[in-house]
Structures are given as structure tokens and as C-alpha cells.
């Protein structure tokens, strides 16, 4: 019986320690982001990696999300004879909810996992120790460009996702089912307010920060992993953990932010 409580206590302390470490890590990264020197080159490279190279997957998933929304929406709305609301249904769902969440999930799968693996391998092969010994702060040198790029890229990718999604909805709604084009767009103009756009932007900004925070810190603290962060298997296990944790965190924060911003 004592063993059981010991185990619970042990787990509690482990996760508390991990949360503390990640908190201090985030603090250090944010502080360093405002400290000079400001180097644009590494940030641009990271925006290219996190943002530009995610465009294809964002356009693809955005288009199909918009199309399926129109498909489902049309099916439901025709039951009430209100297919004229299709435009606003598609746009509101995308801008307020699906755009930020799905774009973030795509970035996690494409860039978050790669970032975690990259930092984890650098940790395992003592490259991060080498940076520290060269008096180069790994937070400033490695993490800050990723954080800034994440906060810039995820909102932009979300915009792309929203626009392509609405276009996908238009194709299915207007093109396939023959919903009136004027009703589709007019409904959208009248129902979507700046507050909805604001909600989407705030969400995507915070999601961008969360993705980079979890991915980088999981890689950075690989050596503290209880399951053993050594070798290729350690990196792969940790990368999986980072993807799962980021995805779950995004969904939980999505609920919290919606509740706060509504």
C-alpha cells in the first residue's frame, strides 16, 4: 500500500519538476527574444522551414476541410430550408475554430516533430553542451528564432487555411449544390465580425507559441526523460511524446480560449 502512494508521490514530483523546468525554459526563451543582438537571418530561415514549407499541406487540408464543411452544412441546412446560411456557417467554423486548430495540428505534425527531433539529437550528441561551453546561449541561438518564427508563421498559415477553406466551401456549396452565390457571400459578410477574426488570430498566436515551446523543450530536456532519452529510440519516443502533448495541449487551450474570448 505504501508502495502505491510512493509511486503516486514519485510521479507527482516528476511531472512537477518537468513542468517547472519547461516553465523556466519558456521564461529564458522569451527574455532572450527581447535581448540584443537581433539576427534576422536565422529567423527568416525558420519562417521558411515552419511556415513556407508547410504551405502545401495547409492548402490541401484547408481545401478539403472547407469542402467537407460545405457538404455537411448543406445536408443539415437543407433540412431547415436555410442553405443560404451555408457561407456564414463555413466561414465562422473556419475562422473561429477549425482554421487555428487544424493549421496548428498540421504544423505540429510537420514542423513540431522535426524541431523536437533536431534539438533532441543535438542534446544527445553533446552539441548543446558544446554551445554552452562556447559561451553561446542555446536559448538565444537555437530557440529564439524558432519561437519568433512560430508566432509569425502559425497565424499566417491559419489565414491561408481559412481563405482556402472558404474557397473549398464555395466550390462545393455554389459549384456543386448550386447554392446562390450572392447568398453565400452576403451571409458570410453579415455574420463574420472583426471579433471572430480577432479570436482566430489570438488563438493561432498562442498555438504557435505552445507548439514551439513544447517541441523545443521536449528536445532540450531529453536527458531528463524518465524513460531514458538515449540513442535513436530515445529521440523517437520523445518526438512522439512531443507531438501527442502538443496536440492535446492545443485542443485543451482551444476550449479555454474559446471560453475566455466568447
Amino acid at each position: 500500500m505504501l508502495g502505491f502512494f510512493e509511486k503516486i508521490g514519485d510521479n507527482f514530483l516528476y511531472y512537477l519538476e518537468q513542468a517547472g523546468r519547461m516553465g523556466v525554459f519558456l521564461f529564458n526563451c522569451l527574455i532572450n527574444a527581447f535581448k540584443p543582438p537581433y539576427k534576422i537571418g536565422p529567423i527568416v530561415r525558420q519562417i521558411h522551414f515552419i511556415g513556407a514549407r508547410s504551405i502545401f499541406v495547409i492548402v490541401f487540408t484547408g481545401a478539403f476541410t472547407g469542402m467537407v464543411l460545405a457538404l455537411q452544412g448543406y445536408y443539415t441546412l437543407t433540412k431547415f430550408g436555410s442553405e443560404g446560411f451555408l457561407g456564414s456557417a463555413v466561414a465562422l467554423s473556419l475562422i473561429r475554430e477549425l482554421g487555428p486548430v487544424l493549421a496548428s495540428l498540421m504544423v505540429i505534425g510537420r514542423a513540431g516533430s522535426a524541431i523536437c527531433a533536431e534539438i533532441g539529437i543535438m542534446r544527445n550528441s553533446e552539441q548543446i553542451d558544446a554551445l554552452e561551453c562556447m559561451a553561446i546561449d542555446p536559448h538565444k541561438y537555437l530557440m529564439v528564432p524558432k519561437f519568433i518564427a512560430g508566432v509569425i508563421s502559425v497565424p499566417l498559415l491559419t489565414f491561408v487555411f481559412d481563405v482556402v477553406g472558404i474557397f473549398g466551401g464555395y466550390l462545393v456549396g455554389v459549384g456543386l449544390f448550386g447554392v446562390n452565390e450572392g447568398a453565400f457571400f452576403n451571409g458570410m459578410y453579415s455574420s463574420v465580425t472583426w471579433q471572430d477574426v480577432h479570436m482566430g488570430v489570438v488563438k493561432s498566436l498562442i498555438f504557435g507559441l505552445l507548439i514551439i515551446w513544447i517541441s523545443t523543450s521536449k528536445g532540450y530536456f531529453l536527458h531528463y526523460e524518465r524513460s531514458g532519452g538515449f540513442g535513436a529510440e530515445g529521440v523517437s519516443r520523445n518526438t512522439t511524446n512531443a507531438v501527442v502533448l502538443s496536440s492535446v495541449t492545443i485542443l485543451v487551450w482551444d476550449y479555454l480560449l474559446t471560453a475566455i474570448l466568447l
Binding site: 550528441s125 552539441q127 553542451d129 558544446a130 561551453c133 562556447m134
Partner: peptide, 13 residues
């Protein structure tokens, strides 16, 4: 550490 130079066992390039 600005006074240090380190050659790691696995070089860590």
C-alpha cells in the same frame, strides 16, 4: 566560459 575551448569525446560538431 569565454576563456574555454573544448574538444569533446565525440567532437560534437
Amino acid at each position: 566560459r569565454q576563456n574555454y575551448g573544448v574538444l569533446f569525446q565525440n567532437v560534437a560538431l
